[in-house]
Simulated assay, not measured.
Amino acid sequence: MDKIYSKGCKIEETLKILGNKWTFLIIKNLMGDKLRFNELLHLLNGISPKTLTERLRSLEKEAIITRKIYPEIPPKVEYKLTPKGDDLKIILDTLNQWGKKYI
């Protein structure tokens, strides 16, 4: 096992990006949808605006989501998954199947 998951392990590197609380729930809610900040805030019961902002910025930095700003008053901002973010669907599906089986 040590040889497979040794230094430079891709699982460890991936969890550095996706392993924070709320990250997978943000991604799950963006699957197939564009959502505004307040819509995400409402869907993620218990997350603070500050934490949501931090997670969205991190996901944008990693090119997992995009942020589109519309020049309106008040400003309208939409978030959506990139193709890189869409590729996480298989992981979410697997987590869902595991949860159905064991929880």
Rank of each mutant, 00 (worst) to 15 (best):
residue 73 I to W: 08
residue 28 K to A: 15
residue 28 K to G: 04
residue 26 I to P: 04
residue 31 M to R: 08
residue 71 P to V: 06
residue 71 P to F: 08
residue 15 L to V: 04
residue 41 L to R: 06
residue 68 K to A: 10
residue 68 K to R: 14
residue 14 T to C: 12
residue 84 K to D: 13
residue 83 P to V: 06
residue 9 C to V: 06
residue 93 D to W: 03
residue 61 K to A: 13
residue 73 I to K: 12
residue 19 G to Y: 07
residue 47 I to H: 00
residue 37 F to I: 07
residue 12 E to A: 14
residue 35 L to P: 04
residue 95 L to C: 10
residue 5 Y to P: 01
residue 17 I to D: 03
residue 33 D to T: 02
residue 53 T to Y: 13
residue 58 S to E: 11
residue 11 I to H: 11
residue 19 G to M: 07
residue 6 S to N: 09
residue 17 I to T: 09
residue 35 L to H: 02
residue 64 I to M: 07
residue 79 Y to D: 01
residue 69 I to C: 06
residue 56 L to C: 05
residue 37 F to D: 04
residue 6 S to E: 10
residue 62 E to N: 09
residue 7 K to G: 06
residue 55 R to S: 00
residue 69 I to N: 10
residue 22 W to H: 08
residue 50 K to M: 04
residue 77 V to G: 03
residue 11 I to M: 10
residue 16 K to F: 06
residue 75 P to S: 11
residue 69 I to A: 10
residue 17 I to E: 10
residue 58 S to C: 06
residue 88 L to G: 03
residue 48 S to A: 08
residue 83 P to F: 05
residue 43 L to E: 14
residue 85 G to K: 04
residue 42 H to P: 00
residue 69 I to D: 11
residue 75 P to L: 13
residue 7 K to C: 02
residue 32 G to W: 03
residue 40 L to K: 00
residue 53 T to D: 15
residue 8 G to N: 11
residue 45 N to W: 06
residue 16 K to M: 09
residue 24 F to Y: 14
residue 38 N to K: 14
residue 43 L to M: 14
residue 83 P to N: 09
residue 52 L to S: 05
residue 86 D to Q: 09
residue 61 K to F: 13
residue 97 Q to S: 12
residue 13 E to L: 09
residue 24 F to L: 15
residue 46 G to W: 09
residue 55 R to W: 01
residue 1 M to T: 11
residue 95 L to A: 14
residue 93 D to L: 12
residue 51 T to L: 07
residue 52 L to P: 04
residue 41 L to A: 01
residue 39 E to K: 12
residue 84 K to I: 08
residue 34 K to A: 13
residue 103 I to S: 13
residue 81 L to V: 00
residue 75 P to K: 15
residue 22 W to E: 07
residue 74 P to A: 05
residue 52 L to I: 03
residue 31 M to E: 13
residue 23 T to G: 01
residue 59 L to G: 01
residue 86 D to Y: 05
residue 14 T to N: 10
residue 49 P to M: 08
residue 81 L to D: 05
residue 82 T to I: 05
residue 1 M to Y: 10
residue 64 I to V: 15
residue 31 M to N: 01
residue 26 I to G: 05
residue 7 K to D: 14
residue 1 M to I: 12
residue 70 Y to K: 10
residue 6 S to R: 09
residue 45 N to R: 10
residue 94 T to W: 12
residue 70 Y to P: 00
residue 71 P to W: 07
residue 57 R to Y: 15
residue 89 K to I: 08
residue 51 T to K: 10
residue 32 G to A: 06
residue 59 L to R: 04
residue 68 K to L: 13
residue 51 T to M: 11
residue 36 R to P: 00
residue 39 E to N: 07
residue 66 T to V: 13
residue 59 L to W: 02
residue 66 T to Y: 10
residue 31 M to S: 02
